[in-house]
Amino acid sequence: MAENTAYDRVKAARANNRPTGKDYINALVDNFLELHGDRRFGDDPAIVGGVGWLGGVAVTVIAIEKGRGAKDRLTRNFGAPNPEGYRKALRLMKQAEKFRRPVVCFVDTSGAYCGIEAEERGQGQAIAENLMEMMTLRTPIISVLVGEGGSGGALALAVADEVWMLENSIYSVISPEGCASILWKDSGKAADAAQSLKLTAQDALDMGIIERVLPEKEMGKEGFYSVLRAELCAKIEELEILPLPELTEMRYRRFRALGAQQLAGE
């Protein structure tokens, strides 16, 4: 896998046969009960959230769901959330905070939806509020990027104590196609853009943006899920014993440090 180009990974991250958000919930969480709606406008099928048991721990779990099959994918808007999706996610996180439940997010989106209604309902404001509130949420948060990590729409569920990425998942400020069409007026140069953007899991690890790269060898199989479950449980256990002010301070420091090494000048 080492000689895979960045764009090969982009294609792998988008592959239709990749496990989706709901697959992770089904495989990892026992007695999952989906909780719907943002209590303000509606329910966004692109984000699935609810409660259940991860190993022996009661958790709140939130996943971006791209859908399976043409009809389901259409219903789920191909995993491009609307503002009500982000507001539902925040509502469930606040609920988790109240009941001292850790939060686990599975992120897989090409980006927050670019639509007329999404703008009317404040897509930017919804994402901004999540970034702010997650930073001080008084319960552990772990986010796992399982496919595409498309810009602000992915970050809105990834302001976490630890962020992990699957080996072939990507995390990017802009889609390689968008980048190529802006820079070179040619979306066909997406492979070059993907290389330049440094969007692979290994790049993210090198820049300190994530803590772990998870191998995909057994992806989707029982062994893969049981390892992931065990790793999540171990990390939650580690984070749960921290006093809450220390936990949120660490989370702040984690993001505060990003970019510091790249600075020049005084």
């Binding site: 970034l131 930073m135 400020v173 820079l183 969007l199 790049d203 943006i209 702040y252 990003l258 790249q262």
Partner: peptide
Amino acid sequence: ARMQEGMLSLMQMAKVSG
């Protein structure tokens, strides 16, 4: 966000928000 600085420019959104 400035695409020429990749993922780290995206992270500034979270950093400033914090």
